[in-house]
Nucleic acid binder design. Structure first.
Lengths: 340, 340
DNA sequence: TTGTACGCGTTATCAG
DNA sequence: CTGATAACGCGTACAA
C-alpha cells in the first residue's frame, strides 16, 4: 500500500496525497476528504524507510542501556519506561540497544547506519569511548550522567555528590559519629562509574566537614551482596550507627542482615540514601531518602535530545537534578546513651 | 558519507562498492582492498533507510511490551533482555514499543509504517485485538502466550496449567489437604490474561483430581499486595497449610506477612510456585518452583520470528515450555499432627 | 494541482 | 569475468 496506489484510487497525483497529509500546501476540502476516505479504507501509512530516506531523519531515537540488562536497577527500569513514554508522546520510536563489547556492532549500526536521529546513553563512565564515537559521527546525543569533561555535551544527571553530602549532614545533625557509605560495586568504581565516584567524593567531603568518621563499602547490585556488606560493616566497625546507601538493589539484603543481627531500624541502626521512590517505600520501615526522579529524568532527556536534534548548533544544555530528601522512618538519633 | 562518495574516492562505480560489500558478485582482490581501505577510513556504513527501502526489509524487529513498563516483572525483564541478546546476535535491531490504549499510534506506526520486519508480542490476552491488527497487516509475529484460538499463530508459552497442576500434586503427595492458589491480579484475569486463567484451570483440575480443598486468591503484582493476600488467606482460611503462587512480584510480601504471623516456611507453611529462577533463589528459604526459562523463551521467540520472516508461507510453529520443578527448601510435609 | 527530481543502496543489464 | 550504467523502491517538495 503506497502513496501511488492511494493517489490512483482517489484520482489525484501522488504529491496531492502527500500535501493533503502533511498540510504543507492547501488542498481543497473535497479532494482532501476523498483522499482521507481511501486512506482509512486501506489503512495506509507512509513507508517509514522511504520517508526517512527523503527527509534525512528517522523519527526514531536510540536508547543505549547497560548490559547485562537483567541487572537493570529499578531506577534504570523506571528511566527506560519514562523515555519510552515521553518518546511515544512525541511520536518518536525507540530503538533499544544494549551496550558492551559484544554489542559493539549494534552500536555502530545505530550510529553509522543512521538508524536513529539521536541517542540517549545510559550509565556513562567518566571516560567513555562511546561519547567519542558519537561525537565523531556527528550524532546528537544526551548522556545520563556526565563525563569527566562534560563541556560541550548535553546531559542529565543526579547530584550524587551533593545528595550524599546532605544525607551525611542529616546523620551528623542527629548525633551519629561513625557512619558508612554503601556504594555501588568495586568493579563499577574501578571502571570510572560517575555516580559511584561522586558519591565517594561527597561522602568524604561531608564526613570531613562535620568531623565524623566514615567508612566506604562498595557493594554489588543485588540482595546477597547487600546482606554480606552489612555483615562486614557490623563485624569490622561495630561502632557504626548509621549508613548512607546509593545502592538500591542491595536494600532487601540490608534488611535481612540487620534483622538477623537483631538490629532494628531505626532504633539500633539508621539508614538513609538515594533510591527510587518505589524501593524507599517498600523498605521496612520506609526509607528516608532522596528519591531519584527517574521519570522526570527520562522526560527531560527526551526533551533535550529533541531540542538538540532540531538545532544541532544550539548550545549544550545540562540538568543536574537534586531532589529533596524525603523524611520517612529509617533514621533516628544516634544511641548516645550506650556510648557514654 | 554515502556509497557514491566511497566509489569516487576508490575510483570505481557505486555498484562495484556494493558488490564488494555484499559479495554477491566477484570483485578483484585489489579493488576490493582499495574500497575497504576507503570505507575504514571514513567509517562508512550503508544508510539503513535506503537499504530498507530497496530491500523491503528493515532488519529490525518490534518488541511490544505491556504497560506500564515500570511494573514489568523480573521474568518479563529477563525475557526482554534475552530478546535483545538474541536479536543482537542475529544482527537485528529491536524497536521497543509499549502497548496500551494511549500507545495505539505507536503500535500502528510499527505495523502499517513497516518500521519492522516482524513483531514479538508480550503478555497476550485470550482475545487480543492486536493479533487481529497484525494479521490484517500481514506482519509476521510471534506471541508470548497464546490466544483462545492459537491455530495459525506462531507462539511460545509456558504451560502454566500443567505446571500448577504438578505443584498441587507435589503438595498433595506431602499430605497437604487445604491449599491456596495465589494468582495474578483480578483485573488481569478479567481482562483475559492467559497464564492467569490457565493457572486457575490447572489448579481447579488438580485440586479436584487429588481430592483437596482449594482457594484461589488473585493478587496484584507487587509486594504490598502479596502481604495483604497472605494476610487474607490466614484470616479467612487458617486451615490452609500450603500455597501455590504464580505471582513472583508478590513474593517479598509473602515473606513479610508469613514472618509477621510467626509462620516459618516450610515448617508451618509450604510455598511452591512458578517464578523466575532469580526470585526463587532470592526467597528465604529458597523457593521450590518451576523456573520459567525466560532467557530460553526470548531466544526461541527471536528464532521463530526469524523463520517466519524468512518464509511467510511456513506452517506456524508453537513451543509450549514445561520446565521441571526445582526442589528447594520451601515445601515440607503437612502438619498432620496438629490437625488430628 | 500536477509533474518530476531527489535521497541512497541494490541489482538487472549492458559493455568491455 | 570485471566494471559501469540505469532503473527501482516510495515519499517529499520544488518548479511549473
Amino acid at each position: 500500500m503506497n502513496i501511488g496506489e492511494i493517489a490512483k484510487r482517489a484520482g489525484v497525483s501522488r504529491s496531492t496525497v502527500s500535501y493533503a497529509l502533511s498540510g504543507k500546501r492547501h488542498v481543497s476540502p473535497e479532494t482532501k476528504a476523498r483522499i482521507q476516505q481511501v486512506i482509512d479504507e486501506l489503512d495506509y501509512r507512509p513507508n517509514a524507510a522511504a520517508r526517512a530516506l527523503k527527509e534525512g531523519r528517522t523519527r526514531t531515537i536510540g536508547l543505549v542501556i547497560p548490559p547485562p540488562v537483567r541487572r537493570l536497577t529499578y531506577m534504570q527500569l523506571e528511566f527506560v519506561a519514562s523515555v519510552l513514554e515521553a518518546a511515544s508522546q512525541a511520536d518518536l520510536d525507540v530503538l533499544l540497544s544494549p551496550s558492551g563489547d559484544t554489542h559493539a556492532p549494534a552500536f555502530s549500526r545505530l550510529i553509522d547506519g543512521r538508524r536513529v536521529d539521536g541517542v540517549i546513553l545510559m550509565e556513562i563512565r567518566l571516560q567513555d569511548p562511546r561519547v567519542d564515537q558519537l561525537r565523531k559521527a556527528g550524532m546528537p546525543f544526551v548522556t545520563i550522567g556526565h563525563t569527566a569533561h562534560p563541556e560541550g555535551v548535553w546531559w542529565v544527571d543526579v547530584d550524587y555528590q551533593g545528595l550524599v553530602g546532605r544525607c551525611v549532614k542529616h546523620l551528623a545533625d542527629l548525633g551519629h559519629r561513625d557512619v558508612a557509605l554503601i556504594n555501588r560495586s568495586a568493579e563499577m568504581l574501578a571502571d570510572g562509574y560517575g555516580p559511584g565516584l561522586r558519591a565517594q567524593q561527597g561522602f568524604a567531603q561531608a564526613v570531613a566537614q562535620y568531623g565524623l568518621t566514615g567508612f566506604e563499602y562498595p557493594c554489588a547490585d543485588d540482595a546477597p551482596a547487600g546482606d554480606a556488606c552489612v555483615e562486614r560493616i557490623l563485624n569490622e566497625h561495630p561502632e557504626v550507627t548509621a549508613a548512607v546507601t546509593v545502592n538500591e538493589s542491595a536494600l532487601p539484603g540490608f534488611q535481612r542482615a540487620l534483622q538477623r543481627a537483631g538490629l532494628r531500624v531505626p532504633a539500633d541502626f539508621s539508614l538513609i540514601g538515594v533510591a527510587a521512590q518505589h524501593w524507599a517505600e517498600e523498605f521496612q520501615p520506609p526509607l528516608t531518602s532522596a528519591d531519584v526522579p527517574a521519570v522526570q529524568m527520562g522526560a527531560e532527556a527526551v526533551q533535550l535530545l529533541t531540542e538538540y536534534i532540531a538545532d544541532r548548533a544550539a548550545a549544550p544544555k545540562h540538568l543536574l537534578l537534586s531532589p529533596p530528601i524525603s523524611l520517612r522512618d529509617s533514621v533516628s538519633r544516634a544511641r548516645t546513651l550506650e556510648r557514654d
